[in-house]
Design a protein around this nucleic acid. Structure first.
Lengths: 337, 337
DNA sequence: CTGAAAGCGCTTACAG
DNA sequence: CTGAAAGCGCTTACAG
């Protein structure tokens, strides 16, 4: 970013050694005598020398750059994942290139194609607009990649929470509170996690022999406030609405709050609501939201660890990781009266 | 990311031309005859050739990489700015390296130092933990950088909303509704925007000759739900609490909602609340939040445009841009009864 | 423990 | 309109 920077040659000259001696010192190879090393370090400091990462990458064919292809960084859940990925990456001496899809399939495609180039060593994908196309591309182009939280595939490595189990736990929680008319609201099922959460919901109902089944699927890719608001309004128009609602995301749950309030009803007195994610807002909502917590930090750390193994051409013993969810009970669910 | 990739040499060989002919074609220099160009393009497609960006950067001394140093990507406001920056960058053929500080001054420092290296062409900074240190570093190291939204300085280029005016508008709105006891809650004043918003608040009170002044400053760098919740609780302990509250962020406003609800009071019947930012949640809160909208897309686009001019060594006519805020009236503010 | 040399894959004057 | 050559700043065998 600055002006003409000093090079290894300059350092070598000042220290009175050869260039590769400087290289060895910079790379911490202890093949250099202490006195020589000291001279080199002194020269480095005097010149304020910084190794050129581009030239280094040119030789090593590694950039230590990771692509982070994320559906929408403004989504509270995805931003938490992005933050955790960045932190894990930083700890390992890598940097992340932010590739924000913003729900735009053509941009996703463009980013994907670039990922096959030499700029990044590997790719983390958090959600995907066009799942099938993404998986195909990754396989044909042999891109080193790990999927997070939505895209499982038998061939591409992935890390995710156990969505089926989590949805089962959430639904069962409301059943345990005496509810029998439990609805599910979710965003588009084009995301695999949508299908999985729905499956967990249905399974819990089946396990308890409940006949009432009611699912409202929004077209939203974002699973956001608006989607939850709209879906809840649809439920409230039912002849006899549910007494509990399991939302596939916290954002949808909070959107549902508003629809319920506008209908003159209260959470949880009239309708219990349970979310999914445990985003920061959950505990500050009124009432505080009962939800399923995803282990985001663990997910990200595992994904990065997996990716770095793949980059190093190691064979990880397991490439499909499923992490456990956790039920967080707050004030938005109550016993059926 | 893939295996051994074809190089320009391979393309040249297949097309039966020299390497630099290929280079000219790839770079769209129209110095090449149509027939030759066609042959080259055919060879490129046949080999699935992609230019190596690292080798290119090595020669051109430009990486087309922008650093995005952001205080906390999980903050809803900062994630919106990050998203807008990424979009503007993408449109210009640049990519962004995500440098998430996560409120950690030592990481901020590390990232800053790396920014002085050759990996990025320029730096966008969104908030800063240690403002003084950041400004000093940028100046002594001559880093090409643009600040967003908090860090104005006479020497370093910056883009921000007019915080003083915005706070003045917000406060005046509650005054126009008849309120006389208007409090201000804010996060740490180490961020310049905190000082500016406070200034706008005080000025509005002075302009209307109101004697009541009440400011609660949280220690929080995050200006988040918790900070708003805590600050509001403090206000509610006052001998005679305010009838209106101007929060320096929407998150703090939503946090205040919870404190008000827990005290058995209602928004806006008992206390009017106005926020700052217009984050997505604002319109889905119950009640929907009156707030100040920041023109995030414009801010980001201007910042990138400014940065690219600086990278191109052009002299922008203005390097300190201040954009206008907009009052968004919803349901959280009401006339004093 | 240290030095001389090749080469990573491009771009860019310079000739022709 | 096209070709031959230098060089960006490193790393990495290979000698010594």
């Amino acid at each position: 970013v600055a002006g003409k920077a000093p090079t290894m040659r300059d350092v070598a000259q000042l220290a009175g050694v050869s260039i590769q001696t400087v290289s060895y010192v910079v790379n911490g190879k202890d093949v250099i005598s202490a006195t020589t090393r000291a001279r080199v370090i002194e020269a480095i400091e005097q010149l304020n020398y910084r190794r050129d990462p581009i030239a280094r990458s040119m030789r090593t064919k590694q950039t230590r750059l990771i692509g982070l292809l994320v559906l929408d960084i403004t989504n509270p859940v995805l931003s938490v994942i992005a933050s955790a990925v960045e932190a894990a990456t930083f700890d390992q001496g890598y940097k992340v290139i932010l590739q924000n899809v913003g729900m735009d399939a053509s941009r996703e495609k463009e980013y994907l194609i670039e990922s096959a180039g030499s700029l990044i060593d590997g790719l983390i994908i958090v959600n995907s607009v066009d799942r099938q196309a993404t998986l195909e591309f990754l396989e044909t182009e042999q891109v080193t990649a790990v999927l997070i939280d939505c895209l499982s595939s038998t061939t591409v490595p992935s890390v995710a929470v156990d969505n089926v189990k989590a949805a089962h736990i959430a639904t069962s929680h409301t059943i345990a509170l005496g509810h029998r008319r439990i609805a599910h609201i979710t965003g588009t099922l084009s995301l695999l996690m949508g299908q999985q959460r729905q499956q967990g919901y249905l399974q819990a109902l089946a396990d308890h022999n409940l006949a009432y089944e009611r699912i409202v699927v929004s077209k939203s890719e974002r699973w956001d406030y608006q989607a939850g608001y709209d879906a809840m309004n649809e439920l409230l128009r039912d002849h006899s609405p549910p007494t509990a609602v399991f939302a596939a995301s916290d954002q949808m749950a909070i959107g549902a709050y508003q629809a319920i309030a506008k209908a003159g009803l209260r959470v949880p007195e009239d309708i219990s609501v349970i979310g999914f994610d445990d985003m920061e807002l959950a505990q500050f909502a009124v009432p505080a939201l009962t939800t399923i917590r995803q282990p985001f930090t663990e997910i990200a750390a595992n994904a990065i660890s997996l990716l770095l193994q793949l980059i190093a051409a190691e064979k990880p013993e397991r490439t499909q990781l499923i992490l456990p969810p956790k039920l967080i009970i707050r004030q938005s669910t109550a016993e059926l009266k």
